[in-house]
Amino acid sequence: MGDVKADELPELTFALPTIPASAGALVRARNDRLLILKPTYKGGWTIPGGIVEIGESPWDACRRETREECGIDVTTGRLKCVDFRRPRHDRPGGMRFLFDCGVFDDDVLDTVVLQPVEIAESRILPIDAALPLLSGPVRRRVRAAWKTKRVRYLEDGRTVQGVGP
């Protein structure tokens, strides 16, 4: 067996698995209130956030999406929840990162500027009033992250047996 030259090797091609990721922001107000947004492109309410773009970190995506959707610059955050969503026939699944971006004063939250193409309305509601308005997966992440001091790991929005907070 002689030496084989690199250009004589067959080209190997394979696809690495891709897992879509998104990042969301808990933008809190005093007295246990939460900023929620009403998207134009789907039903229900959500929190600021969106898809992690190629080359972007989840934290960078959280900050960019919050700035784009409601005009708020978040400069600090703490990872509060990671949720693995299994793919289904109608959605690709993926990883969802949720950051607590701190408590903002009302004078800052009064300056919210919505991105009208994506966001129809915003509200700042007590957490107990906000949670029922959020879509199921977002609601479960927000509920899991709201008071905890540790990062929570979820799968499809639910705690996983054997994985502690």
Rank of each mutant, 00 (worst) to 15 (best):
M1G: 08
M1H: 04
G2W: 04
V4Q: 05
K5G: 01
K5P: 00
D7I: 01
A15H: 13
P20M: 04
A21H: 05
S22K: 03
G24Q: 15
G24S: 15
A25C: 12
A25G: 04
A25D: 03
V27R: 08
V27E: 09
A29Y: 13
A29I: 05
R30E: 14
N31E: 15
N31W: 11
D32F: 06
R33A: 04
P39E: 12
T40S: 15
K42Y: 07
G44T: 08
T46A: 09
T46F: 14
T46C: 11
I47S: 04
I47F: 07
P48A: 12
I51Q: 14
E53R: 15
S57W: 09
A61D: 09
C62A: 15
R64T: 07
T66Q: 07
T66K: 03
R67M: 07
E68I: 10
C70T: 02
I72P: 02
D73V: 13
T75Y: 13
T76L: 13
R78D: 03
R78I: 06
L79W: 02
K80Y: 10
D83N: 15
R85N: 08
R88D: 02
R88F: 01
H89W: 03
D90G: 01
D90H: 12
R91K: 08
R91C: 02
P92W: 01
G93M: 00
G94S: 01
M95Q: 04
M95H: 03
M95I: 12
F97S: 03
F97K: 07
L98W: 11
L98C: 05
C101E: 09
C101Q: 07
G102R: 08
G102E: 11
V103D: 01
F104C: 11
D106H: 06
D107Y: 14
L109K: 05
D110M: 01
D110L: 02
V112N: 02
V113P: 00
L114Y: 01
L114P: 00
Q115M: 09
P116N: 03
V117R: 13
V117A: 12
E118M: 05
I119N: 12
A120E: 13
S122Q: 10
S122V: 01
R123W: 03
I124L: 11
L125N: 05
P126N: 12
I127R: 06
D128T: 07
A130V: 04
P132S: 08
P137T: 13
R139Y: 04
R139N: 09
R140Y: 01
A144K: 10
A144M: 11
W146R: 05
K149F: 03
R150G: 02
R152E: 14
L154T: 00
E155Q: 14
E155A: 12
R158S: 09
T159R: 15
V160M: 09
Q161S: 11
Q161V: 08
V163G: 01
